[in-house]
């Protein structure tokens, strides 16, 4: 489903060269929940953005459904993100001027679905994550956990094949965090959506079928001691 080959992302901070992602090979199988563990600054977000076609690698290749997408134009990548991928960010990333319902259906509208279709789908999703009575509220009227669940519904609205989640629970208390992770696993079971999430919290490993570890931009299959820091 998703494959990365020899990925590198190098940042230049003045004279200092920071290899945020270094020599990464990775394959995500359809229908799995994969977790990338790593401590803060290890390059998790950078890697996730590259895999999610939001950012470009300095070198290396990304294959999505056997297509080399690393050379695609931005407008082609935007179409893939819109129709086949979903994103949940670490910070609450809802649009403040839209209600929960509007936030959820925006990507569906962009994809050209009919109002009856996208509204119904958005309502169904909000219902399944338990926020139906909040659907006309604005993000500022929702708690962090509720916002994050709305973001998950938004990520799901176009029935993507894969959802990328960047530390979706990092800013939440443990109860809300649990609800958010359960919402993600429920989607995986219900619709078979592939999920790739990153975390620095070793507790989150239990939600994944497979865990890889990132140290200073390099991947390894086994856990070290550092990531709990």
């Amino acid at each position: 489903m998703l494959k990365a080959e020899n990925l590198k992302k190098i940042y230049h901070m003045g004279d200092v060269v920071v290899p945020a992602v270094n020599d990464v090979y990775l394959e995500v199988e359809p229908g799995e929940i994969m977790c990338i563990m790593g401590k803060s600054g290890s390059g998790k977000s950078t890697l996730l953005h590259i895999l999610g076609l939001i950012d470009s690698p300095t070198s290396g290749k990304v294959y999505f459904k056997n297509q080399d997408v690393s050379k695609f134009s931005e407008s082609k990548r935007a179409k893939i993100r819109l129709a086949q991928m979903g994103f949940v960010f670490q910070e609450y990333a809802l649009l403040p001027e839209l209600t929960a319902l509007e936030n959820v259906y925006l990507p569906a509208r962009m994809l050209g679905r009919w109002p009856s279709e996208y509204e119904e789908r958005a309502v169904t999703l909000l219902e399944s994550i338990g926020l139906i009575e909040r659907m006309h509220h604005h993000p500022r009227e929702l708690s962090g956990g509720q916002q994050q669940r709305v973001a998950i519904a938004r990520a799901m609205v176009n029935k993507p094949e894969i959802i990328f989640a960047d530390e979706p629970t990092a800013n939440l208390d443990s109860t809300s965090g649990k609800q958010v992770m359960q919402a993600l696993t429920w989607l995986n079971k219900q619709f078979g959506t592939t999920i790739l999430f990153v975390s620095h919290d070793a507790d989150d490993q239990k939600y994944a079928n497979r865990v890889v570890h990132l140290y200073d931009g390099r991947l390894s299959e086994s856990a070290g001691e550092e990531y709990n820091a």
Binding site: L82, F89, A93
Partner: peptide, 15 residues
């Protein structure tokens, strides 16, 4: 930031 998010979820720049 909002514009960045809109773009990330696939709202095209011309839109």
């Amino acid at each position: 930031r909002q514009i960045g998010i809109e773009r990330a979820i696939g709202i095209s720049p011309p839109t």
